[in-house]
Design a protein around this nucleic acid. Structure first.
Lengths: 237, 237
DNA sequence: TCAATACCTTTTCTCGAGATTTTTGTCTAT
DNA sequence: ATAGACAAAAATCTCGAGAAAAGGTATTGA
């Protein structure tokens, strides 16, 4: 009677926005992650609706969507705020990400087929190219590097069959992106990220699960260390 | 300048709704979990706004909030639907829940103090009482048992310091509740849940992490088996 | 000087109507 | 009989204005 079941997939970013509310959601999310709206800031609908050129109700929907990703918090009858950040929160995010992402990688290595291997190699190549151009002097934007870094990590666990793990991992990645921006602004390419990525790819293709998850864990945890070394006034509040 | 940081906590249920949209959200969530709105059903705003006695825009917000919990899916410009269910999905939910909940329990056992032990014993007692009254013949509603079962599992991992794990676990619990209703309708108390809970409490208080997580895993996985044995027409579509 | 109350401004929340898009039903042509 | 297209109908999405609540300020009394 009814048509085909809808994939229980959440909002993904590869598709283009189909509604004004979702377009505003994208822009707002980008602005929050990039720090245009700072953590703890109040998000007044009356001001923002002009800035993003949508109605009040529409902007409100966008804010609700952002609450899904825990990038903004809704407070009863007192409006919306950009979610605050703290070292404790980032440590929590990182550890939870390790838990989920290693589990996902483990399954991905176990189940991934030739096509998966190919996409891993391909996305790693794209990321490497972006790093070359980035060091080469502004031939590639940091935006693009972020995009490809994200794609690489996504492809790594793409063969994991668990939609839920991938969904949660996605949320956490967005969260950690906010913190990573803080550290990357200071140290252009702080550590040898490239070598770490390379090692993960090698271990993954060799189906060496233990080695791959070990390196991935260190890789993620190193970002935590980098943020820990930041001046306190950047992440306080 | 600005006041105290807001706890980055999501919507919890212990507080009472402060807005019409949230009230509608609660009612809708309850109705979806209880099966009033069946999986895959279309949720037409025009019909539901009368039923829940709110405006169209307000009900829309409630639906957005439900999309957060993945209980409804929003489809571009084609409205909202109750999230479909499937065996594969439930298997995914269950395995992910095991991953998160065992990790949380492990930390909880490691870090929990006397007050935590006390709350574990207390919530287990409340749950046991509910089971007595339930078997005694309708002196306690299944609603109440569900409530206390939920509280018990929540308290078990309450000493885990990771807000994110608890947050995700919360979402997954809601999801699995939908499936569990299906199986509990048939077999009133299908297996010896009480003994399993007892064993978890014993192991937790003895700080026997390995044993506690092992039993918890079996406990959660058994629900998957119960749903697997259901007639297919209940969970198909 | 300090505290408490009342008032006023600002912001949020809610509602109903109009514009767009999707869906359904029918008709025609191959 | 099937496929395609056009038109009518339904539903969704969007917007602006009004009601309710929160926050800030000034006034009053001790």
């Amino acid at each position: 009677m009814n048509e085909i079941a809808i994939p229980p997939e959440s909002i993904t970013e590869d598709e283009q926005p189909k509604t004004l509310a979702e377009a505003a959601y994208r822009q707002l999310r980008r602005d929050i992650i990039e720090g245009v709206h700072r953590p703890g800031d109040k998000l007044r609908v009356e001001h923002l609706k002009d800035q993003y050129e949508v109605g009040a109700g529409t902007l409100r929907e966008a804010l609700q969507l952002l609450a899904t990703d825990a990038l903004v918090v809704a407070q009863g009858q007192r409006g919306f705020r950009v979610a605050p950040i703290s070292l404790d929160d980032f440590e929590d995010i990182t550890r939870t990400r390790v838990l989920l992402e290693t589990s996902a990688l483990q399954q991905s290595i176990e189940l991934g087929d030739d096509a998966w291997e190919a996409s891993v190699v391909a996305s790693f190549h794209l990321l490497s190219r972006a790093e070359d151009k980035l060091g080469d002097g502004g031939k590639c934007s940091r935006e693009e590097w972020e995009q490809r870094n994200r794609a690489f990590h996504e492809v790594l666990i793409a063969a994991c069959p668990s939609r839920w793990i991938r969904h949660f991992q996605n949320i956490l990645y967005h969260q950690s992106e906010r913190y990573r921006r803080l550290s990357l602004f200071r140290q252009p390419i702080p550590r040898d990220v490239h070598a770490e990525h390379q090692a993960i790819v090698d271990a993954a293709l060799a189906r060496n699960t233990a080695e791959a998850t070990r390196i991935l864990t260190e890789h993620i945890m190193r970002t935590l260390e980098a943020v820990r070394r930041l001046p306190e006034d950047l992440i306080s509040r």
